[in-house]
Design a protein around this nucleic acid. Structure first.
Length: 645
RNA sequence: GGCGGCGUAGCUCAGUUGGUGAGAGCGACCGGCUCAUACCCGGUAGGUCGGCGGUUCGAGUCCGCCCGCCGCUACCA
């Protein structure tokens, strides 16, 4: 039988785990645990991405041998995940020999069959992002449009992966497999991204000796880190060495990740690579949203990055909650508020609210009050002759089913709230039946039935809660004197716990946080300074600002349309002391012939932009009349190069 | 500019294929209970469902336009 194969991305080792990476990993773990409880064999992969040149640089800056650095960082990740009760089967490190062999072999095969070809790359490159950028994106500061760091100019031979040829097949696959990319927003986004065809991607890098060498290449190039990283999913199945038996694991049933790496990488390059290899594609790719803090992205520079274990530690201390349960509380919060379609707000206050409300008051208190009464009234044993209430039993089974459906759909916010419906139903039931009054009035039989019904709810809850809170589930099972948390089948049955079955003495699992409402016990980090708003476009500017614009008169010497464009003309203009090429979007108003010899006004100190492959070294001034550009020119003929002021 | 999405009670958000008087949680207020971790249960919030117009017997739910915000993308100049 095929194993249920679930993956997280491998994480960059140049930063420590934060609540974003924790989210992906916890969601994956919850999915894995759910599948296990359903009785499936599960293979759960996570790991670290260690071959990036950036990693090498960071290590050098720290003065540590790179291998030692990645070893240490990988350990930090493993320790963090273990502390968060992540039960992975494989921790893949891309510096492992078997991974290097896989990546090398794939590269070689694709090159042999022509899916990888030799070309050349010339342009700006961000080492930090491992990405090339077109000239018109980089600005005159030559900084990375994504991370803002300085770019390097590269001009080098380079291998390309023929991604473009897979556009159609990929689109067909996405269209015919509605659940291939989830949630739907991401699917639409990917289709939009692909709409005008995919570009071949550079899959090698030069100028570094850290990484997996390109096979059969003497230039010293290494395989592009994303190309290698994606293949870790394949390495983990031992595809290279196992003949066809790797199919007991391959393809992945669920690949989880943040929304940022879905459209460009996992939903395009990755499946195209697999198509090229003739391998089955993953069943589902799921890209969740991001945590935002105070309405802003988490970032080191804003200082609003949370470390999961610190958050847990603080809660544990403030609430007096034992660490394993504080960890589970954190997992619960991550999953209950998990961003699915869009981003969601993370806050310590939100965490505390969930902790007190959902965990201490609802779940914890229900377990505690149920067991307390059973101890007080029935000597800590399942009451003799107790029968479960049919109405409630029906509800339990129904909610368990709904919870399962939501978990299956990676919708933990919904799944957990379906489970919590059981808790509020039992609290209401206790209120109506008042077993304490029944007991007082000597109606022992009735009281026993009511509490038995509640106890069965607790038993079922231990199962429903286990994917999110494994240690809490174990503790509940222990209180019920069960050897382990039951599997999911136990949620379809009621009346399972036998008469006279002994129960443990309860102790609150989640001690209530004692604090004034709205006054978080945990100190929020200092509010990051809001980004200065850009001045509105109608604000007044100074003369000095205006004088920074260098506008000069020029004569058009030549003009030709740029093929396959509607509006663009390529012009050569004469500024007296120099000639420049300018791309202008005026073809709808002017024919090339009408322009030659004409004088125009040119903004000459605008940063160059590449439009349709042509570098434009300035901008023509024109009046905008209902979208049509009407050129401006001097009142009388003036020398070329004359300045406008 | 194009594509996609969002804008629903103080806050965070649910609201399948259009149809009983528009919902949940949190917070607030009032009441009840006392087994329980000052917990739980019930009630109260009179919200132009971003704005305008349209289709319809009937629209947060469909169509058009507009405003605001976000993401992606582009032949923005």
């Amino acid at each position: 039988m095929k194993r249920y194969y679930i993956t997280t991305p491998i994480y960059y080792v140049n930063s420590v785990p934060h609540i974003g990476t924790a989210l992906t990993t916890i969601v994956a773990d919850a999915c894995a645990r759910y599948q296990k409880r359903r009785g499936r064999a599960v293979y759960f992969l996570t790991g670290t991405d260690e071959n990036a040149p950036k990693v090498h640089r960071v290590a050098q800056e720290k003065g540590i041998p790179t291998q030692q650095f990645v070893d240490e960082m990988a350990e930090v990740f493993e320790n963090t995940w273990r502390a968060l009760h992540i039960e992975y089967d494989v921790f893949m490190r891309t510096t492992e020999e078997r991974h290097k062999r896989t990546a090398t072999e794939v590269f070689r095969r694709l090159r042999q069959q022509g899916d990888i070809y030799e070309g050349r790359y010339e342009g700006w490159y961000c080492v930090s992002c491992e990405t090339f950028f077109a000239l018109n994106k980089v600005g005159d500061e030559r900084t990375c449009p994504d991370c803002g760091k300085p770019l390097e100019y590269r001009d080098e031979p380079c291998y390309y992966f023929r991604l473009s040829t897979y556009t159609e097949r990929l689109r067909d696959h996405i269209l015919s497999h509605p659940h291939f990319i989830e949630p739907e927003v991401r699917r639409n986004e990917t289709l939009g991204f692909m709409a005008e065809g995919l570009q071949d991607v550079a899959v090698s890098r030069s100028g570094t000796d850290w990484g997996i060498p390109v096979p059969d290449d003497s230039s010293g190039a290494v395989i592009y880190v994303w190309f290698d990283a994606l293949l870790n999913y394949l390495t983990a199945t031992d595809w290279l060495d196992r003949g066809d038996t790797y199919l007991d694991t391959w393809p992945p049933d669920l690949q989880l990740m943040g929304k940022d790496i879905l459209p460009r990488f996992h939903a395009t390059i990755w499946p195209a690579m697999l198509m090229a290899l003739g391998l089955p594609l993953p069943e589902r790719l799921y890209g969740h949203g991001w945590w935002i803090v105070n309405k802003q992205k988490m970032s080191k520079s804003l200082g609003n990055v949370y470390a999961p274990l610190e958050v847990v530690q603080t809660l544990s201390e403030n609430a007096g909650c034992e660490m394993p349960y504080a960890v589970d509380a954190f997992r619960y919060y991550m999953l209950r508020e998990m961003p699915t379609d869009s981003d969601a707000e993370f806050s310590l206050q939100g965490f505390e609210t969930r902790y007190n409300g959902d965990l201490a008051n609802d779940l914890g208190n229900l377990v505690h009050r149920t067991l307390s009464m059973l101890h007080r009234y029935f000597g800590g044993r399942v009451p003799e002759g107790a029968r479960i209430d049919d109405t409630l039993a029906h509800l339990f089974v129904q909610q368990a089913t709904r919870t399962a459906e939501a978990y299956e759909a990676v919708d933990f916010p919904r799944g957990l709230s379906e489970a919590w419906a059981i808790i509020s139903a039992v609290n209401r039931y206790y209120d109506e039946q008042a077993p304490w009054t029944l007991h007082k009035q000597g109606e022992t039989q009735r009281a026993g039935q009511v509490l038995y019904t509640g106890l069965e709810a607790v038993r079922i809850l231990s199962v429903l809660v286990e994917p999110a809170m494994p240690q809490v589930a174990r503790e509940i099972a222990r209180l019920l004197n069960l050897e382990s948390v039951p599997d999911w089948n136990a949620t379809h049955q009621v009346g399972v716990l036998a008469m006279e079955h002994p129960l443990q003495e309860p102790k609150p699992i989640f001690p209530r946080l004692q604090a004034k409402p709205n006054a978080p016990v945990v100190q929020e980090p200092a509010q990051p300074q809001p980004e200065p708003k850009q001045a509105p476009s109608d604000a007044l500017i100074t003369l000095e600002q205006f004088q920074r614009l260098k506008i000069r008169v020029a004569t058009v010497r030549s003009a030709e349309p740029i093929p396959n464009t509607q509006k663009l003309l390529k012009l050569t203009v004469d500024l007296g002391d120099e000639r420049r090429t300018i791309v202008a979007g005026i073809a709808e108003t002017y024919s090339p012939e009408a322009l030659v010899g004409r004088q125009v006004l040119v903004l000459v100190n605008l940063q160059p932009a590449t439009l349709r492959g042509v570098v434009s070294e300035g901008m023509l001034l024109a009046a905008d009349v209902e979208g049509k550009a009407i050129l401006l020119n001097p009142d009388q003929s003036v020398p070329n190069g004359a300045c406008v002021r």
